[in-house]
Design a protein around this nucleic acid. Structure first.
Lengths: 204, 204
DNA sequence: TCGTAAGTGGAGAACCCCCTCCACTTGGCT
DNA sequence: AGCCAAGTGGAGGGGGTTCTCCACTTACGA
């Protein structure tokens, strides 16, 4: 019900919403490489309509993924109020990696969006995670030499699994995360079962 | 001094070699997306020359990377004769991941080459690694629930770091590998120092 | 009901890619 | 020296992309 939305004619508003939904679907399924024409076709509109609402492909990507990024932000803030900081820490990594494994466009969108994200938001998220890391370290469950930068390391590593079909990617991601969390911690736990990751499976 | 090589005129032979060298350089620097025209230009030849020697881009990629893949094969076989199977295991992962972090085209080339690799070679490599895993497990240094498929997991995860500039990718890869090896083992060691992986650094 | 501003679709411009064709050049044998 | 098979470069065909232009259609207030 923003000004810009209510100023749109009813049919236009509906088209816009459908385009956005389709874009999210296709970006998740096939990554950001999916052509604008494909999005327009599946949404049942012409390309011109699409470009009228989203002047550039990048703007569509940004709009399509702001929701996901907001979820990430929320996940971190939520973890910060968890009384057990180590559990909070694990939850952050597990949830974000799951999101990433589920959505093929996630990482690329994040990278594309990153430069034009208000640095204010970035700083805040980063600060929150730093806080979480400090507490988990102070609690003695997170190893002392863990660096907040390792979050980026985990995210990048996890993004390497995005090529595989979703179910495979999710299973692989869960095992990878389990391995990593285990070495982030001071202790030992059972892993989820091995993933039969032959490359035949990975190549779609 | 193969028949096909010696049948080439001297100048042609030199051009072919230069093209191959340039291709390796550019694939390593910028990934497989680098246009054929760019390779031709840097090698100081026309595109036609390039296509005369390598009828298709894929064939150039295959030729450019067979050396690297042979190295991987050698690394595994060499590890198998190491009297300490755990050290062999670590060496395999470290060396292959280093190769991967150093060369931006590595993973894509591997994936592209994979289907048309003689399954005989694949089987052999896979068998060797399986042997190594069995021995390391039997030795009690590798965790019992490690799966040979986890090698693929490591490789895919490590490939996620390839976007960053080489020095960053290498440092990040080393830390990732250290983390993973630590959770593959039954014990604990110090990590290499954290990598300041802000996304500014990662985006070239 | 009807006028008009808002919205639309599809053709096509501009660009980049892989790869081919062909008139020209050149190495190396005689 | 001279011949010619072998080798060459650059123009351009065919297909893909993002994005624009403009004649047509439609929602909706008066």
């Amino acid at each position: 019900m923003t000004a810009s939305q209510s100023q749109l004619r009813a049919d236009a508003q509906e088209n816009r919403a459908r385009v956005l939904a389709v874009a999210r679907e296709l970006f998740a399924e096939r990554g950001l490489d999916v052509p604008m024409a494909a999005i327009a076709r599946r949404a049942g509109v012409g390309v011109a309509t699409l470009y009228r609402r989203f002047p550039t492909k990048e703007s569509l990507v940004v709009e399509a993924f702001t929701e996901q990024f907001a979820i990430c932000q929320a996940v971190i803030e939520e973890a910060l109020v968890d009384p057990d900081p180590w559990r909070g820490f694990c939850t952050v990594i597990e949830k974000v990696c799951l999101l990433q494994a589920t959505d093929r466009g996630f990482t690329a969108a994040f990278v594309a969006t990153f430069p034009e994200m208000h640095s204010e938001v970035r700083e805040r998220t980063w600060h929150c995670f730093g806080e979480l890391v400090d507490r988990a370290r102070a609690g003695g469950q997170l190893r002392a030499d863990f660096s907040p930068h390792d979050l980026t390391l985990v995210l990048l590593a996890n993004s390497g699994l995005a090529g595989a079909p979703v179910e495979v990617a999710v299973a692989a991601s869960q095992r990878l995360v389990a391995y990593l969390l285990e070495s982030f911690r001071t202790g030992t736990d059972a892993l989820p079962p091995p993933v039969p990751l032959s490359l035949d499976l990975v190549l779609q």
